[in-house]
Design a binder for these strands. Structure first.
Lengths: 223, 223
DNA sequence: ACAATAATATGACGATCGTAATCTAAAAAG
DNA sequence: CTTTTTAGATTACGATCGTCATATTATTGT
């Protein structure tokens, strides 16, 4: 019959997934769904929620748009799920990182220029502000997770220390997000874009070095 | 003739502009154009560049969509102009403001909850990052203007002081923008949204108070 | 006063949007 | 083996998108 044609299509579209049949294993379907979410997470970060249509999105994942509503109730649902996925990735990457290390990686040209791979907060935070409460809730949860991942391990959780640490990471995160977003709003490769990044990175790191009251290393750290 | 009817329509639609005729005074046309730009600037800040269509935009300004392309070459052109308009308004408002005063007003609930009236950078910076180089250039110019407006008047422009002041305002701006955007990405009225705002405002003001090397007031300022 | 101009209204174009109905055939259930 | 279920393909719907063509008529230039 037309099996050869199907195989041909398969090779042309998604060699990884490898199937274009009508019905698919339950495990395969789950995997396909995850792949759609991952693709959406990247595309949304690159072009914004309104910048990617359902059809284009499915095509980028290697499918036609028809099956979309077998996986998600609406585009808004996928937006929330893709955002949650991206946010959890960022939190996982930050896990165990020293705040200074986080800032070095976050407030960098590589991060600024790699929207699709970068932080969902910096890429879609502006869009999220105009979306549904559901999506904003996902963002808040993602932010909380990131804060937790960044909070230095306070084995003796004296309430004052804990609160101070939380305030510190909140401030560092907002500061870093602002630096990336401001830099991205400038023309690619413009001096101002780089200046913003360099100035902010330096200032954030300085405030971190000085704000360490645990290790009272004022100007000359450990000798 | 039908002047009475025109007046009636006028009252129903845009009492300010006052005319619905086909042809209009050159001055009136200019005023109409400015009104369209102002309306667009507000609507874009509230709903994003992709969230407002040309027809809806013109209707909000009191016109039909037909005349749009007599005023602007494309929607992208209006986006750039509306952004420039909003950015210059922000810079004008910041003119002569002490950095601390700026932060008090900028990192506030009123600003966060008033997108349409607030800073264009915070409202559209995320969108601008995905737009054309022309629009990004407008943003960079607007940011530069805001930096200049915020820079304390260095009457003796020693290069070192000047550069330090510039670094300070760049850092404060990015920090403030990040605080607003992060807070706006959280659900309306959520504790985290307010916490971000309060923590960041406090930290930014603290860094300003401490960073003042001109007035060497370390802990106890002027006596 | 007359002719040329241009700001607005009306209507329509093709493209794309999110969503859904229908079809197909293989996987899952019996 | 038979039946049911369902992932994905195909097709299509109505709405909206940015843009443009045309008509109208008061203003502007002469």
């Amino acid at each position: 019959m037309s099996i050869d044609i199907y195989v041909c299509w398969t090779v042309e579209r998604r060699p990884t997934k490898g199937r274009l049949d009508m019905r698919v294993t339950k495990a395969q379907a789950e995997q396909n769904r995850a792949h759609i979410v991952a693709t959406a997470s990247r595309l949304f970060r690159e072009r914004g929620y309104d910048g990617v249509g359902v059809a284009e999105l499915m095509a980028a994942a290697g499918f036609t748009h028809g099956g979309f509503y077998k996986h998600f109730r609406s585009k808004a649902d996928l937006m929330a799920e893709a955002s949650a996925s991206g946010l959890s990735t960022t939190a996982a990457r930050a896990e165990g990182l020293d705040p200074a290390e986080f800032v070095e990686r976050y407030v960098s040209r590589e991060h600024r220029d790699g929207r699709g791979d970068g932080c969902t907060i910096a890429a879609l935070g502006g869009d999220a502000a105009r979306q549904s409460a559901d999506l904003k809730t996902e963002f808040a949860a993602g932010i909380e997770n990131l804060l937790t991942a960044l909070q230095p391990p306070t084995d003796t959780p004296g309430d004052a220390d804990q609160r101070a640490a939380r305030m510190m990471v909140i401030d560092v995160l907002a500061h870093s997000v602002g630096a990336i977003m401001l830099s991205r709003a400038c023309p690619d490769g413009s001096p101002l874009a780089d200046e913003i990044l360099d100035v902010c990175r330096k200032e954030i790191l300085a405030s971190l070095a000085q704000g360490n009251s645990d290790q009272p290393a004022a100007s000359s750290p450990e000798a």
